[in-house]
């Protein structure tokens, strides 16, 4: 018995290192967009890590224990909410064994809290409808004005946790919001020519984006969120697209484009594969360049459209 215990003690000690002590506040976000905005507000006062890479589909993340380690050392957890992370975040919060970031604690921020949600389920919902998010569509970061709201929520939280530096966060917030507002009017100008253009998206990922820039999403390639479409739905979609002369299928680049390509072939439309999060392509380095990339790509396709 004693022999085994001592072998165990040695084995365990082999793995014990020392945690370094840092002055900055440690912030962990689920998505890279939240990390990008948090970086703008926190500046050099915080250290930000995003769990999900921008080119990954946040619906299908595996709760890797290595994420628990990151969350274990966090002073603040910021997540997108609206059940985007439902399949994995609770396991990580429990596994992180960090009392500060649990639900109801000060270091726990749901970034969706001040967002006006789209597609909130009214009436009865169930799983026969696919992977639905009953509290609203969680892809709200693709409306750039929601970036202003997310920034404000993060500012509020950082000032609550670190009141001494509140004035610094405040000036970062103002700078970020001013820059974003400028950018927004430029993006709006760019997209103005395409108001009312009918498009099809693969997943209901572009609802906020389309609504903000006045694009009309006539249908989705997926009949039900998260479930590959049936041939029946695809032929219905093809007919609809031909009738309405829809020429563009928007798709986040982490989805396979087999189905979209099939439809595009039959309708003469173009599949536009776009980054949906910061880091989704190498050009989309932060929240600003994410929209720059998306809008530039769209502009390229839409301007050549017959």
């Amino acid at each position: 018995m004693r022999k085994y215990v001592s072998i165990y003690a040695i084995w365990t000690l082999l793995f014990v290192g020392t945690a370094s002590v840092e002055a900055e506040m440690n912030v962990v976000t689920t998505t890279s967009d939240l990390a990008s905005i948090a970086k703008e507000i926190g500046g050099s006062l915080i250290k930000v890590k995003a769990l999900v890479k921008g080119y990954q589909d946040p619906h299908y993340i595996q709760p890797k224990p290595s994420y628990m380690v990151k969350m274990n050392r966090a002073d603040l957890l910021i997540y997108q909410g609206l059940e985007l992370e439902i399949g994995w975040l609770s396991v990580l919060i429990d596994g992180a064994r960090n009392p500060n970031i649990r639900l109801g604690q000060r270091g726990h921020l749901d970034a969706s809290k001040n967002i006006s949600k789209l597609e909130v389920a009214g009436g009865k919902v169930d799983r026969s409808m696919g992977d639905i998010h009953p509290y609203g569509n969680p892809h709200y970061h693709l409306n750039p004005e929601n970036g202003l709201i997310i920034a404000k929520s993060i500012y509020d939280k950082l000032s609550e946790l670190d009141a001494g530096n509140s004035h610094l966060y405040k000036s970062n917030l103002s700078r970020f919001q001013e820059k974003l507002k400028e950018k927004i009017s430029a993006w709006k100008n760019r997209m103005n020519a395409y108001r009312g253009t009918q498009i099809v998206s693969y997943h209901k990922l572009w609802s906020y984006f389309a609504r903000y820039f006045n694009l009309v999403v006539v249908d989705t390639v997926e009949a039900k969120p998260g479930i590959p479409p049936s041939t029946k739905h695809l032929s219905k979609l093809t007919a609809l697209m031909n009738r309405h002369k829809v020429k563009v299928i928007l798709q986040a680049n982490f989805y396979e484009s087999t189905f979209a390509n099939l439809v595009a072939e039959k309708t003469g439309s173009i599949v536009v594969r776009l980054p949906a999060f910061v880091g989704g392509t190498s050009d989309a380095k932060d929240y600003f360049s994410l929209f720059d990339t998306i809008i530039e790509e769209l502009h390229k396709v839409l301007q050549t459209k017959p």
Binding site: F15, P65, V69
Partner: peptide, 11 residues
């Protein structure tokens, strides 16, 4: 116990 290592390590 989640050990204070750089990687995930638990006892």
């Amino acid at each position: 116990y989640l050990l204070p290592t750089e990687w995930f390590s638990e006892f």
